[in-house]
Amino acid sequence: MTFPLTVGEGQVFLLGDNREQASDSRILGCVDIAKTEGKVVAILRTRAV
């Protein structure tokens, strides 16, 4: 994985909640939305976004 990274159309960048132990998109790369399951329960934003 090299950064900066562009997330492609129909993909997501996933981060685990235990950042030091997680195997997430920082290691595995972007994931196709069709291969994900679940639902959004919260969207957190900062004022700058």
Rank of each mutant, 00 (worst) to 15 (best):
T36Y: 04
R47G: 08
L15Q: 07
A42K: 13
L44G: 05
T2H: 06
T2P: 06
G16T: 08
I43T: 14
E20L: 15
A42R: 12
E37I: 15
E9P: 13
L5H: 00
V41K: 12
T2Q: 07
G8L: 03
V7Y: 00
V31M: 10
I33D: 00
K35W: 03
E20A: 15
V40H: 01
T2D: 06
P4F: 08
M1I: 13
I33H: 03
V31H: 05
L28S: 09
R26M: 04
I27T: 15
E9L: 03
A48Q: 08
F3E: 01
D17N: 15
P4H: 01
G16Y: 03
T36F: 05
S23G: 10
I33E: 04
E9Y: 11
S23V: 15
V12P: 00
D24N: 05
R26P: 06
A48R: 06
T46W: 09
M1N: 12
K39W: 01
E9Q: 05
E9T: 02
P4M: 06
A42M: 11
T46A: 11
D24Y: 06
G38Y: 07
L44Q: 04
L5D: 00
G16L: 14
V7W: 01
D32F: 03
F13Q: 00
D17V: 14
T46P: 10
L15D: 01
R45Y: 04
L28A: 10
A22G: 05
D24M: 12
A22I: 06
A22V: 07
I33S: 02
E9N: 10
Q21K: 15
N18H: 15
P4R: 03
G16V: 12
G10R: 01
A48M: 11
I33V: 14
G16M: 12
G38P: 08
R45A: 03
L28W: 13
Q11A: 08
